[in-house]
């Protein structure tokens, strides 16, 4: 579903590359944790998948297509196939829960009837039944993130990218969010989640890809999170 071939991304000629010769394969329907310290290249990975940035060297394939060959006017189509969730939710504060989710459908021209039918379904999937008319500021952090997830999946993308989705949430709420992401993954969506929340990684027992200084240093099928101190110690030893 996502394939990186020797991908290098250099933002600034003087500094170190954000990604350095990364090769990675994520299959359809997989759930992958992308772990690593801040600045290890997790967000760059996500930006490259979305074609927000171009790889300096190497090739990025999304759904079998080399994103470098997608003309700019086709990029929206690429992005419709990818849902994204962020640490800071990015909801529209002046729109209700329903309107926030509906917005993602309106802007790609879905009909009102389809929106009215789909949005409540998706809100149910993320566990927000009956909160259609709440405003974002009336919701807890966990609920806001659920709205953001609902918005990301409402157009039924094949891939869901989550950039530290639990970064602002307490452990209990985070586990709730993970259940939602797991459910979405069970429904066939490929999920790539960047995180440095060790509890979550250790509980979920999914594939773990660790980045350090832009390089893949570990790729375990049912991995655990290895803390910063441990890896530094291992590297030292």
């Amino acid at each position: 579903m996502i394939r990186f071939e020797q991908v290098t991304k250099v933002y600034d000629q003087k500094s170190k590359p954000a990604l350095d010769g990364v090769s990675l394969d994520v299959d359809r329907g997989e759930f992958v944790f992308l772990v690593g310290a801040s600045g290890s290249g997790k967000s760059t990975f996500i930006r490259l998948v979305l074609k927000e940035d171009r790889a300096t060297r190497g090739a990025v394939y999304v759904a079998g297509q080399n994103v470098a060959n997608i003309p700019s006017w086709r990029v929206p189509k690429l992005r419709r196939g990818i849902g994204v969730v962020f640490q800071d939710f990015r909801l529209l504060p002046n729109k209700s829960v329903f309107a926030n989710v509906a917005f993602a459908m309106q802007v790609i021209g879905k009909s009102r009837a389809v929106i009215r039918e789909t949005v409540p379904e998706v809100l149910k999937t993320v566990g927000l039944e009956g909160k259609n008319n709440r405003m974002p500021h009336e919701l807890s952090g966990g609920e806001q993130q659920r709205v953001a997830i609902a918005r990301a999946i409402v157009n039924k993308p094949g891939i869901l990218l989550a950039d530290e989705p639990t970064g602002n949430l307490d452990p209990t709420t985070s586990m709730g969010i993970m259940k939602v992401l797991d459910k979405i993954n069970q429904n066939g969506t490929t999920v790539v989640m960047a995180t440095h929340d060790d509890d979550i990684v250790n509980t979920m027992r999914k594939r773990v890809v660790e980045l350090r200084d832009g390089c893949v240093v570990r790729d375990d099928a049912q991995g655990i999170y290895i803390g910063e101190t441990t890896t530094t110690a291992a590297a030292a030893g």
Binding site: L50, S72, W73, P76, K77, L78, R79, R80, G81, I82, G83, V84, R90, L92, F103, A104, V107, I108, G109, R151, A152, N155
Partner: peptide, 16 residues
């Protein structure tokens, strides 16, 4: 904010 989200969910350039 709006245009950022529109971009992410794949709204076309024209509609943005």
């Amino acid at each position: 904010r709006e245009t950022g989200i529109m971009r992410l969910v794949g709204a076309s350039k024209a509609i943005i």
